[in-house]
């Protein structure tokens, strides 16, 4: 057992975990934070996306012990205009992928703000617009089997539009 301390959604949690416990299982089974979902446990669906020190990660591919001393934000700790926008644009059906989509979108917008290019960003582009194809590309690690992709895109474009483009 290793003792780790993490700041989770603004409160400091210390817990004893075996070194093989994933961050996702630590959050869900040890801390009772079931907002991050388990869809595959293999990094293929994005349902487990959380923000670790502001960066989006797949919590199922992370070991809890690696995040000793980190700041973790799960959907339970999110208060963002995107949440309301998801409801308005119907960016979900069953809601199972939704916490991951939301955390991922928040992390994605931050990456864009920081100037991080994506596979569809034109090479050498300076300032560029956060186009629909940019958002689609950057959100493609988050699967939605209900197929709410149009609504998710609308919600993100709506909020990103208000926040302005880079």
């Amino acid at each position: 057992m290793t003792q780790i301390r993490m700041n989770v959604n603004g409160s400091v949690e210390s817990l004893d975990v075996e070194p093989w416990v994933s961050l996702l299982d630590a959050l869900r089974e040890r801390l009772g934070l079931t907002g991050p979902k388990k869809g595959c446990d293999q990094g293929a669906c994005g349902a487990c996306t959380v923000l670790a020190d502001g960066l989006r990660i797949n919590a199922c591919l992370a070991l809890a012990v690696q995040y000793d001393g980190s700041e973790i934000t799960t959907i339970e700790g999110v208060a963002h205009p995107l949440q309301e926008a998801f409801v308005r644009h119907d960016g979900f059906q069953c809601g199972y992928c939704t916490p991951g989509q939301l955390c991922s979108a928040i992390g994605m917008l931050a990456e864009y703000e920081a100037g991080m290019p994506s596979a569809v960003t034109p090479p050498g582009a300076g300032a560029y617009e956060l186009s629909e194809s940019e958002v689609r590309e950057r959100m493609s690690g988050n699967l939605c089997r209900c197929g709410a992709y149009n609504g998710i895109l609308d919600a993100i474009m709506d909020v990103a539009g208000e926040e302005g483009t880079r």
């Binding site: 388990k38 959907i75 999110v78 409801v87």
Partner: peptide, 20 residues
């Protein structure tokens, strides 16, 4: 708007594997 929209966008909605 969906009646369960807020629950699903805040993480409040609990699924079958999430009952302690």
């Amino acid at each position: 708007d969906r009646v369960d929209g807020p629950a699903k966008t805040t993480g409040e909605a609990r699924f079958a594997a999430e009952y302690p």
